[in-house]
């Protein structure tokens, strides 16, 4: 029996000239699932994520989110879709350096609709940065920056959170902090997560792991709950 998922990837291919980054990837992710995409360097993980976010166009294939084929949308519709339905977390923290933590979060609100300071402060408190809301990114540690990014990605209540190596630049302790935070928020609001990593230790936080190799899905399995959650 085929279950209709929240995120559906249908025969998705991406070629950069000769390089075939993705080959006919098929994937269905149900609502609220935490999917981890693993694979060696150059296997096409980032490419897959960019496609899901609509940042680049595929060579062939479709991506459906909540039943909407995102590449059939017009540019502006796609942007609106991304604003409202997708949250992004990057390996590099990509905060705007001359805005404070609070302002960075408010910027996302502003792009979405209107800035709301109280709501932004709440979200920063939720990620445990209550006393650092007015700091500039350079005055925050890597882990703290990544938590600002989480707050920013989730501020507009997206249905889908995409994270590319969110812990790539962090040490174990900070990574754990960030991942625990993410799983707490995930349990609270039940959004779908697609998280890319090459670190099996990080993958244990997810519910399902997809192994990507040379642009193809080679493995796809659920994580045992007992093993995953508490380290």
């Amino acid at each position: 029996m085929k279950r209709k998922g929240y995120l559906e990837i249908i025969r998705l291919s991406k070629e950069y000239g000769e390089v075939k980054a993705l080959r006919e990837v098929k994937l269905t992710v149900p609502q609220g699932q935490w999917l981890t995409v693993m694979g060696p360097s150059g296997s096409g993980k980032t490419t897959l994520l960019s496609l899901i976010a609509g940042l680049i166009k595929p060579t062939r294939g479709k991506v459906k989110i909540g039943g909407v084929d995102i590449f059939s949308l017009s540019d502006n519709q796609l942007l609106q879709f991304r604003r409202e339905k997708i949250g992004l977390i990057f390996q590099q923290h990509h905060l705007i350096p001359y805005l404070t933590a609070l302002e960075n979060v408010m910027l996302a609100q502003f792009i979405h609709s209107l800035p709301d300071e109280a709501e932004a402060i709440d979200s920063l408190i939720k990620v445990g940065l209550a006393d650092k809301i007015n700091r500039y990114p350079r005055e925050l540690s890597g882990g703290e920056q990544q938590r600002v990014c989480i707050a920013r990605a989730l501020i507009n209540n997206p249905g889908l959170l995409l994270a590319d190596e969110p812990t790539g630049n962090l040490d174990r302790k900070n990574s754990e902090l960030v991942l625990n935070l993410l799983s707490k928020l995930h349990q609270e609001s039940n959004f779908t997560i697609v998280l890319v990593t090459h670190d099996p230790w990080v993958a244990r936080w997810g519910e399902r792991i997809v192994q990507l190799e040379d642009g193809k899905v080679v493995d796809d399995f659920l994580v045992q709950k007992s093993r995953g959650r508490k380290r």
């Binding site: 409202e84 209107l114 501020i155």
Partner: peptide, 14 residues
Amino acid sequence: KSPAERRKFKAELR
């Protein structure tokens, strides 16, 4: 339902 949606309505109205 969510604050984000409320913001969106507000922005549209405005």
